[in-house]
Amino acid sequence: MAETRYIKAVNQALKDAMRDDPTVFLIGEDIGAAGGSFKATRDLLDLYGPERVYDAPIAEAAITGIAVGAALTGMKPVAEIMFMDFITLSMDMLVNQAAKARSMFGGQGSVPMVLRTPHGGGLNAGPQHSQCLEAWLAHVPGLKVVVPSNPADAYSLLRAAIDDPDPVIVVENKALYAMKGEMPDTPERIEIGKARIARPGRDATVVAYGAAVGMAEAAAEVMAAEGVEVEVIDLRSVQPWDEACVLESLSRTHNLVVVHEAVEAFGVGAEIAARMADIGFDELDGPIVRVGAPFAPSPFGKTLEEAYRPNADRIVAALRRTLA
């Protein structure tokens, strides 16, 4: 067990995957000589050379399409899109090409590519460098989307994504990059689609992913002081998501709150709430309450951004509402 940081865990996962499989290579903007905008790929150019670490021009659509074509030709590319906001430029390659190739070609092959990209606010990066757009991708059949909430998961989920035969989007959180955490000597092998109980509880369930997991844990602390035991589920993967785990928890706690940093409307939380309102209807003792960002572009200014992002207080308020 050693302490590491989220960004270092990402770096270690890339380093280990490249060591274990010569077909793994990296492509992205400034990932080589500069080591990446957030230093996720630091030292990897020196370690593996320019034939495996490609400093790409600023051309997100081509970067993503090159990953698709290389994956169809026997390689395992890991592309970095510097900010999740920029995947707007990659969307045809993700949605019409990567996601559909296997099904559309009758299962002849697959697209074993990974696309890493950071989402989230907290850096006052403004409306075009802070968005959480994972629900768009989770809506597309053929894509998988994982969102690690801590350093150990950042390592294990990225390794699982690289091992996966299908396209996986690994959404990291900028505000978590400096987060410290324990890295087990033998990192966990995570199955994409399985959630983790981050904190057990019996009175209410909070489902979260990414940075919202920490906010949910903080809210659970507040409630615990009042004698309310809140269970926190870290989804880890939003596509596929662990419906069985959420339903099982709901059947014990009978109250459900879903939290994410992304805009609340039409988000991942809407899907979870809809499914639980259907298959978990008989278990519910209160309304399913969502906590997310308001329906506005993510603002730049400090006071505005603080008000925009979900936090423990808003999760506590949501819990009080469903428990009332």
């Binding site: 290579f25 993503t64 090159i66 698709v68 074509g69 290389a70 026997g74 559309m104 070609f105």
Partner: peptide, 24 residues
């Protein structure tokens, strides 16, 4: 590697395939 319903989509896919060929 496929016909394509999106105009010019074959270009980046083939560029990636060519990169794979060069690496191999």
């Amino acid at each position: 590697l496929g016909a394509n319903g999106i105009v010019a989509a074959g270009l980046p896919i083939t560029t990636g395939s060519a990169l794979a060929h060069r690496m191999q």
